[in-house]
Simulated scan of single mutants.
Amino acid sequence: MQKLFTYLLNSIHLFAALILIVMSLLIMGWAVYEVIASIPLKGEFIPRMLQSVGAIVISAAIIDVAQYMIEEEVFMNKELRDPREARRTLTKIIVIITIAVSIEGLVYIFKAGTENMALLIYPAWLLFVSAVLIVSLGVYQKLSATIEQEEKSKIKV
């Protein structure tokens, strides 16, 4: 019964990951279409290009999540996770999110700069949040690497 349940859960994770990949590819295709469609429109190309870059970065993050689901939940034994690998995966996802937030901030800066300067508060906060994410990631990396080194030194002794 346990094997059947494990097979069922692995199948569900695989199905969810494949759906995420298909949806990401659709987002990427739509982003490229939007850029091509905006070429003849004066003043729309750069904002659409930046929005499309943001959409593609988000799509890459979604694909990374799907890859993680397939590797960790379908193929690997869930009991034998390496903390270093978990740190790398988390780092990759946070970096992609930070890039997406930064790009979104840039898109809104261009929009606010052409429409209303009072709207610059929101993109400024987005850029601030992306900076906080980068600093937080650095602190996390430092703390987790220090803990890993301490654990390795305890094992050697």
Rank of each mutant, 00 (worst) to 15 (best):
A66Q: 03
K156V: 11
T146V: 07
V57N: 00
E115C: 01
V157Y: 09
P40T: 08
M76L: 15
H13C: 13
I46T: 10
V129Q: 02
G113E: 02
I99D: 00
K142D: 04
G138N: 04
L106T: 07
E104Y: 09
E151C: 02
I21P: 04
A60I: 11
R81H: 08
A131V: 07
M28L: 00
F75P: 01
A55Y: 10
I109D: 02
V57R: 01
G105C: 07
K152T: 07
P123N: 05
F110G: 09
V32I: 15
V22C: 10
A66I: 03
I12T: 12
Q51G: 15
A31C: 10
F15I: 12
K42L: 10
E148C: 01
I134F: 00
V129T: 08
G29H: 02
T114P: 00
I109A: 06
I36P: 05
I109W: 08
F110W: 04
D82H: 09
Q2Y: 11
K142C: 07
D64G: 13
V22Y: 07
V53W: 05
Y122F: 14
F45R: 10
Q51C: 13
P83N: 09
Q149K: 15
Q51V: 12
Q149H: 15
E115R: 08
I99F: 00
K42A: 11
G43H: 11
K42H: 09
V53R: 00
P123E: 05
A61S: 11
G138R: 06
L41G: 01
K156G: 00
E72G: 06
I58T: 08
A124W: 03
K111T: 05
L8Y: 13
Q149M: 14
L126F: 05
E34Y: 09
E34D: 15
W125E: 06
V32D: 05
L143G: 09
L80H: 12
Y7L: 12
L41C: 03
K154G: 00
L14S: 11
V157M: 14
A86L: 15
F45A: 03
P47L: 07
T6Y: 13
L137Y: 00
I21N: 02
L133H: 00
